[in-house]
Design a protein around this nucleic acid. Structure first.
Length: 341
RNA sequence: GCAGAGGUGGCGGAGUGGUCAAACGCAUUGGACUGUAAAUCCAACUCCUUCGGGAUACACAGGUUCAAAUCCUGUCCUCUGCA
């Protein structure tokens, strides 16, 4: 796919956070029909490091991946690791400073450094650093997060243009993240402020489901309705197959979620043979089931192996089980998303 | 045969008079996971239950005690060493 067509039709990007979709080789990833992946700024800045990424010629060369690469800015990690105090760190209006628990180094992520690192990674589609927080914020906190997100987005764009020449010079796309928690009005405000700055894509950020696991459609609509039709809309972290269907219906075209691959590793597979399309391959009923995971699937796993084999591999703790399950789930999602176009 | 050690839930293995239906691990059986600190986490796992409890249980059979997986006696079995 050409970058200029990105987001014109539905696309699902698996998360290759550290430069690989877990348990898959780049070739196996290609074979699932995947055209774009998401890698993560924060993870890659810690290892192998921004300078090293640059020296190695960027993520695409490193992975031998010729598809599209989107780099997430690290905004979500700022929330999930630092705001929630799993990692030591501080967040202020300038960005986040944190200590990696692995080797103890201190890192700083600001709107500007996030862009710099994404450039070192060699991404095609950059994401502005945003202030992502938990979903049940009260309105004043949500407003703070919106204000900061917009301010950071502006700084990201300025930096991207001044230092690198922007989209025109680099040929890369710059997308921003819309915050506003569970307040559709704030979502709208945030979207409008971002549109004024101008981006190539608008990403729905924060948490995409409420406490009951329901997709936050009202908030998502507020963003669609207040952003330009000709720019791509990316529903970050969406989601379960039905959530993708719903989000697609209201105008989102770009999706990513860890559910596909994590669920695969944890034994939750998808199959059109099952009524609610969820097949828990670890369940004992599959231990002697010789059928493929999905009779309508032509992925490597379904063409070559039975439910019983995947069940056994996963139960036995063999990495092959994870690989086979991931290949299938990813192929299932790619087919799902194509079917929505 | 003699001398030591020991027999605990599907398995391994704690516990050595009461707070024990019995730690912990594994296995098993369900479930969760939504811009990945996740090959992770949660729950159930003797039987019955109106979910309050109830009934049997720590090789087997007796006994001591208010109370035994824990103490005593016998039986059976296992392992190690010596013949």
């Amino acid at each position: 796919m050409e970058l200029k067509d990105f987001g014109k039709k539905n696309i699902f990007m698996p998360d290759a956070t550290r430069g690989a979709v877990r348990f898959l080789t780049t070739q196996q990833l290609k074979d699932t029909g995947t055209e774009a992946i998401v890698t993560n700024t924060l993870h890659l800045m810690i290892a192998p490091g921004a300078e090293k990424m640059k020296e190695l010629g960027g993520i695409k060369k490193l992975m031998n991946w010729d598809g599209i690469v989107l780099t997430d800015s690290g905004g979500f990690q700022v929330f999930s690791l630092i705001h929630s105090k799993k990692w030591e760190g501080k967040i202020d209006e300038n960005g986040a400073t944190f200590k990696s628990p692995r080797e103890g180094n201190i890192y700083t992520l600001t709107p500007e450094t996030s862009i710099d690192i994404q450039m070192c990674i060699g991404s095609d589609i950059l994401v502005t650093l945003d202030d992502c927080r938990k979903s049940d914020l009260d309105e004043s906190e949500a407003r703070e997060s919106v204000d900061r997100t917009v301010a950071w987005a502006r700084r990201c764009k300025d930096h991207f243009e001044k230092v690198y020449g922007g989209t025109k010079e680099t040929g890369k796309l710059l997308s921003c993240v819309v915050q506003g928690a569970k307040y559709p009005e704030l979502r709208k405000e945030c979207a409008k402020a971002l549109v004024e700055i101008g981006f190539d894509g608008y990403n729905f950020g924060g948490f995409v489901v409420d406490e009951d696991g329901e997709l936050v459609l009202d908030e998502m609509r507020a963003v669609i309705e207040n952003t330009p039709v000709d720019k791509f809309k990316y529903a970050m972290g969406v989601g379960k197959p039905d959530d993708i269907r719903r989000a697609s219906k209201i105008g989102y075209r770009v999706f990513d979620t860890v559910l596909v691959t994590r669920n695969a590793r944890h034994g939750t597979l998808y199959s059109s043979d099952i009524e609610d399309e969820v097949l828990r391959i670890g369940n004992s009923e599959y231990s002697s089931d010789q059928r493929p995971i999905d009779s309508n699937c032509d992925c490597y796993t379904c063409k070559n192996h039975s439910r019983a084999y995947v069940h056994h591999m996963l139960k036995a703790g063999e990495a092959t089980g994870m690989t086979l399950a991931t290949i299938h789930n990813l192929a299932y999602y790619q087919k799902l998303v194509q079917g929505l176009s």
